[in-house]
Write a protein that binds this DNA or RNA. Structure first.
Lengths: 201, 201
DNA sequence: GTCTATAACGAGATAGAC
DNA sequence: GTCTATCTCGTTATAGAC
């Protein structure tokens, strides 16, 4: 019962954020209403506005990419492929709710679109620097596209098998794709957990 | 000038459909308003409703997948990979506006979601039958995911390089991925136009 | 007084009456 | 083929609880 006013407020704020995360990631930006968020959080619509200024602000608070959490990309093409694959496997293992909000909204909401675009551009640039080939930029884009498609298929489209497949199995099947796109040895079926080897061929 | 009433109506209907196709594919379902469609088609919002019953019905009229236009899938794993790759290359070459409407809305609109889901399920089933491996279903899902990601990256995200890359170059880079996922020889860099060869290994 | 809940406003949408 | 009633949205103003 020792819940001070400010403590109470903190909790309400947290409930709202949590509800917003859920709804934005489940329905996307336009189909998520402030009112629904408020109901879900057992709070008042007016409160949501008071705490978070606007729907737009609430969304960008929820859907923010932590660039620093992303792995740095570099090394040989095969290493780049491994790094990306490991990153994908992580995302497949833990279901990143905030990222899903972004993904689901990216096709219809301008800010989400900008954010995703900025993210892939940054990743793309780092990859392009690491991949020595002449068509490195295209390779980098395709790597991003494959990751995007995989995440989408699992969490948003909910493809029947992909939805429940163990991340390791997915990563294993994708490994030669990543290797080929990165320009390493295309047919190199090597264990994705091993990151300590020189590029073959 | 010999435009009868019914002919006039036909033209208006066509203008509305064309406008709807454009707007749905550019903005997605929720951000496309009947008013905007009407304005774009130089018609009255009420007319749009009169001709097409509802926004929902207009959308499903615009975004319908012609299943029969899709290639039949079968043969050896390598042939399946080639067929899919050729299909992807076609889509990369001609920018399918109706499909884009579906894609852009699939993450936020239930019916679009169902339609896409039904489509990938059908494709998935046909692929699964053709791929002999034990984990064929997962492979099929991943093939679908890669195609989805590539289309998304080119048309909707507009990744800088992928956006303007020639379809042949994209297909060439993707070829080993498709081969590996289909379970053919993973490193088999063969010309994608050649569909007359037995599965290696 | 500060924090919360209720009510209302204006914009914009769909859909049905005219 | 046009017009307008009704709904719901995001948001703001107002009244009440601690």
């Amino acid at each position: 019962m020792a819940t001070s006013r400010t403590e109470q407020r903190r909790q309400t704020e947290r409930r709202i954020l949590s509800a917003a995360r859920r709804l934005f990631s489940e329905r996307g930006y336009e189909r998520t209403t402030i009112r629904a968020v408020a109901t879900e959080a057992a709070a008042d619509p007016g409160l949501v506005m008071r705490y978070f200024e606007s729907k737009e602000a609430l969304f960008s608070r929820v859907a923010r990419i932590d660039m620093d959490a992303e792995p740095s990309i570099g090394g040989s093409p095969a290493e780049v492929a491994d790094t990306l694959l490991a990153s994908l496997r992580d995302k497949l293992a833990k279901e990143p709710e905030a990222a899903l909000a972004l993904l689901r909204s990216m096709l219809t909401h301008p800010e989400a679109s900008r954010e995703v675009h900025a993210y892939v551009s940054a990743q793309q640039r780092r990859m392009t620097d690491a991949l020595p080939q002449d068509n490195a930029a295209l390779r980098a884009d395709l790597l991003g596209a494959v990751m995007l498609g995989t995440l989408l298929g699992r969490y948003l489209i909910r493809m029947e098998t992909l939805q429940d497949a163990p991340p390791e199995e997915i990563a294993a099947l994708l490994s030669p794709c990543f290797q080929a796109l990165a320009g390493g040895a295309p047919g190199d079926f090597h264990d994705t957990a091993a990151e300590d080897h020189a590029p073959p061929r």
